[in-house]
């Protein structure tokens, strides 16, 4: 496939009122793959006050040509957005264009690409970390076995090619400014044609401090902390001193110590901070895939065989109950 004949359509996302960072990452990747780049954004539900025109200016700086703000009504947006994107694919194909559709590995991105794969009757390649063009299709790169192996898969045949990309795999880079036009649409008829659900309540979990996937320092806790109180005292306490974001292993999310939004790993967030501090976390493969890309890793664990040490630049074989209070004390003294 040739980039000059390819339309790239991607799923953008709004997070806490602003475009999510993976939206800029995918835009940056899209420039390498195609000549016309279109971002589709759900502007329904809690996003109704979102400023689409301002977003189009931002996206223009990343080379995006069109921003489609689609109102998908009251339910989950996956089905409606997929139907909308499917129409975009069909019209591009009727102009003899090849199409690549990319969505983020997020709740929304997975749903959209899954539904689209049924509409378009094409499989979707999930968990990719990169996409390249190939003579008659695309080649996607994936990490498997907890990030210990790199797998390349080839997908050939008719358009569209559908890919789900893991956030934080591509670095976002602005381009020379592009004029990005705005298209507003309703997905109403597309939703009614299919199944519909309705969101009847949204609870927002308040979180203080920097966002987990944007922070310079992330400090995470695991089951080794022993209790929720220790998470508050040792992890949150230390994060306050460092200006760090707080994360968690799935074990303590499942135990209800912290909300799911804190989970780092395969089914949680991917983080790539300057420094990642893992406290009382064993380092299961599913945790490692979410934090292995951190620039520097510090691990504190009593078990010198814990797998987390195999990726740690600084490995502390010790009890968190001993090390963390002292660390917090010293950080406090350093400040004053």
């Amino acid at each position: 496939m040739e980039a000059q004949n390819i339309d790239v359509i991607f799923v953008g996302e709004i997070s806490n009122g602003a475009l999510a960072s993976h939206t800029f990452e995918i835009a940056s990747l899209a420039r390498k793959l195609g000549s016309s780049i279109k971002c589709v954004l759900s502007v329904s539900n809690s996003n109704s006050t979102f400023d689409v025109d301002a977003a189009s200016v931002q996206l223009g700086e990343y080379g995006v040509n069109e921003l489609h703000g689609v109102d998908c009504g009251k339910g989950l947006c996956g089905y409606g957005l997929a139907g909308y994107i499917n129409r975009m694919c069909e019209s591009a194909q009727s102009n003899s264009k090849d199409v690549i559709v990319v969505g983020p590995a997020s709740y929304l991105g997975r749903d959209v690409l899954a539904h689209l794969s049924v509409f378009a009757d094409r499989n979707v390649l999930a968990n990719a970390i990169d996409i390249d063009l190939d003579s008659d299709g695309i080649v996607t790169t994936h990490m498997i076995f907890g990030g210990s192996k790199v797998l390349k898969a080839k997908s050939s045949g008719t358009s569209p090619q559908l890919v789900i990309l893991r956030p934080k795999s591509i670095s976002a880079q602005a381009d020379s400014a592009t004029q990005c036009s705005v298209v507003r649409a309703q997905a109403g008829d597309l939703i009614e044609a299919g199944a519909s659900s309705e969101i009847i309540n949204s609870e927002i979990t308040q979180s203080d401090g920097p966002a987990l996937d944007e922070a310079t320092i992330v400090i995470s806790g695991g089951r080794g902390l022993g209790s929720q109180e220790n998470y508050e005292k040792l992890i949150v306490g230390c994060a306050n001193e460092l200006g760090a974001a707080t994360g968690a292993s799935r074990a303590i999310v499942d135990a209800g110590w912290v909300p799911y939004s804190k989970q780092v790993g395969q089914t949680g967030k991917t983080v790539k901070p300057q420094v990642y501090i893992a406290c009382g976390i064993s380092g299961a493969t599913q945790h490692l895939v979410g934090m292995k890309g951190s620039k520097n890793i510090i691990a504190i664990n009593t078990d010198d065989q814990a797998p987390i040490f195999s990726v740690a630049d600084l490995g502390i074989v010790a009890d968190v109950n001993v090390v963390m209070p002292e660390l917090i004390e010293k950080l406090k003294n350093l400040k004053s």
Binding site: N123, L125, S148, A153, V311, G315
Partner: peptide, 17 residues
């Protein structure tokens, strides 16, 4: 329509101090 073309070891992080 899809096939795996290669599998390689990922660049390994070295354990540090």
């Amino acid at each position: 329509s899809q096939s795996v073309i290669s599998i390689d070891d990922a660049p390994n992080r070295q354990a540090g101090v």
